[in-house]
Computed example of a mutant assay.
Amino acid sequence: MSAGPLRRAIAALGMLALIPILAMMASGAITPIDAAIRALSVAAAVIVLGNVARAFLTGALRRVERRASAEERRTAPDEQLPV
């Protein structure tokens, strides 16, 4: 199954957000349990961000589509008049 470009971009940003946790764990600043809790928090934030972005983009694209179809309906009867 193929993921869309928005989902791939958000996943990449989520992976980048895990780098500081990895660095802190590697340096011994946090324990593996603390790192797991922080990683789960990042995962939850990425999922929420993805859903919000998807909802926003879906709404915006539907709004543009409705405006285009309304404009098309307004201009269509004029084009059908006999010459």
Rank of each mutant, 00 (worst) to 15 (best):
M1N: 02
S2W: 02
A3N: 04
G4W: 03
P5L: 02
P5G: 02
P5M: 04
L6R: 05
R7A: 12
R8Y: 01
A9P: 00
I10G: 10
I10H: 05
A12E: 09
L13R: 05
L13Q: 13
M15C: 11
L16F: 06
L16A: 09
L18W: 02
L18S: 09
I19R: 08
I21P: 14
I21R: 05
L22A: 11
L22N: 11
A23C: 10
A26T: 09
A26H: 05
A26L: 12
A26P: 12
G28T: 04
G28M: 06
G28H: 01
A29N: 09
I30E: 02
T31F: 02
T31R: 01
T31C: 00
T31Q: 06
T31W: 07
P32G: 14
I33K: 06
D34R: 00
D34F: 00
D34S: 07
A36L: 10
I37P: 00
I37C: 02
R38N: 10
A39K: 06
A39Y: 01
L40W: 09
S41E: 13
S41C: 09
V42H: 03
A43I: 04
A43V: 13
A44D: 07
A45D: 10
V46D: 07
V46N: 03
I47Q: 13
I47T: 14
I47R: 09
V48I: 11
L49V: 10
L49D: 08
L49M: 15
G50V: 07
G50H: 05
N51I: 07
N51G: 11
V52N: 03
R54F: 13
A55D: 12
F56P: 00
F56W: 13
L57P: 06
G59K: 00
L61G: 04
L61F: 07
L61K: 09
R62A: 15
R62H: 06
R63K: 05
V64M: 15
E65Y: 00
R66W: 14
R66K: 15
R67Y: 08
S69W: 10
S69P: 01
A70R: 12
A70W: 06
E71R: 09
E72G: 07
R74V: 03
A76V: 10
P77E: 11
E79D: 14
L81C: 05
L81W: 08
L81P: 14
P82I: 03
P82E: 14
P82S: 11
V83R: 08
V83P: 12
V83G: 14
